[in-house]
Amino acid sequence: MSHYPAAGIWTRCPACGRHVHQSQWGPWRQCPYCQAWQRLSATERVAQLADSGSFTALKSSVRSQDQLKFPNYATKLTQAQAKTGLDEAIITGWATFDTWPAMLMVMDSHFMMGTLNTTVTRKIIAALQQARQRRVPVVIVTASGGARMQEGLYALVGMNLILAELARFAAAKLPLVTVLTDPTMGGVSASFAFKGDVIVAEAGAKIGFAGARVIQQTMPTSLPDDFQSAPSLRAHGQLDAVVVRPQLRAYLINVLANYQQSGGPQHG
């Protein structure tokens, strides 16, 4: 019998470097030593936010294509699908929050860093269209490194396509709540992440466009220690709130309840 522990029992905290036993992370996936939050998968996020058993995924036959014949892209797609059990870097579907209905979209940073590509774009647009037809609020949870370089301009066009659909959604006077989690960067932060009527960040999230290292290499200036942190963005008026993970579901319930009380769709 091997004297080594079974695989997957211990995980190295990316923040402090300590080795943490799976039981120590707890239900909210927080390091017991430095209190850093572990990145969640999209399915874990849905389980924490939505009413139990309420999430119904939208059906989609759209699959990502290697249109540019980018080296090893097809292989990376297959590996990401096997690793996460998802077909792409986002899941979309109907959900309730303490019985308040909403369209819920959750990006997954474990799938090629949650990057925005043509398929993710189409899923977001389809979900927005269905929410507009049913006149229900939308909750988008971002977790992304930006646009997917393997799809080049095709991925970048998605930014404007989503913004155009969001303009139609806003014209219908329906609320959009964006929840920015770690990380929310690049083309996602530059497009729909900050378009919410309510913009909330999860505590510990890194949010920005270009990374701090890239900025320091191009600008002869030193950056503050809290650069691109959620509290810093809140202090500069870019966020409505910074909420710790255990309180995020209650925050969303309160937002959706307030919308209902101001004349939104019927309860239940």
Rank of each mutant, 00 (worst) to 15 (best):
L161T: 03
P183N: 04
N160D: 15
S191H: 04
L163M: 10
N160I: 00
T178H: 12
A167Q: 14
I162N: 08
A170N: 11
K173Y: 02
E165A: 14
T178D: 12
V177L: 15
L156R: 15
L161Y: 01
A193R: 06
A170H: 14
A171M: 07
K195D: 08
F194W: 12
E165D: 15
P183H: 02
F169W: 06
L156N: 10
L166C: 13
F194S: 09
G186T: 10
A164M: 02
F169M: 05
V177G: 01
M159Y: 00
A193H: 06
R168V: 02
F194P: 01
T178A: 14
V198E: 06
L180W: 07
A172S: 15
R168M: 09
L176P: 11
E165H: 14
V179L: 14
G158A: 05
V177T: 13
G187I: 06
Q150V: 03
M159T: 09
Q150L: 00
L153T: 12
N160C: 00
V179T: 04
A190H: 01
P183W: 03
L161V: 01
E151Y: 06
F194Q: 09
V188H: 09
D182P: 01
A164C: 00
A172D: 12
M149A: 13
L180N: 04
V188Y: 07
M149K: 05
P175H: 08
I162T: 07
A155Q: 07
D182Y: 11
N160S: 13
V177W: 08
T178K: 12
V179F: 02
G158P: 07
A171F: 00
L156T: 11
A167V: 03
F194G: 10
A172L: 07
V157W: 04
A170G: 06
T181C: 13
D182I: 01
R148D: 12
V177E: 05
T178W: 10
L156Y: 03
L163S: 04
A167Y: 00
F194K: 02
R148F: 11
L156F: 03
V188L: 09
K173L: 02
A193Q: 04
L156D: 10
L161W: 02
L156A: 13
F192H: 14
I162P: 10
L174R: 07
A155S: 15
F194I: 06
V179S: 04
T181M: 14
L153W: 08
R148N: 13
G158T: 05
Y154M: 04
L180C: 04
K173Q: 15
Y154W: 13
A170F: 00
A155V: 09
E151L: 09
N160G: 12
V198P: 00
A164T: 02
M159S: 08
A171S: 14
P175K: 09
S191P: 04
F192Q: 05
L166I: 14
G196F: 09
A155G: 05
L161P: 00
I162M: 10
T181F: 09
A193Y: 06
Q150G: 03
M159G: 08
L156M: 12
E151F: 08
L161R: 14
A171T: 10
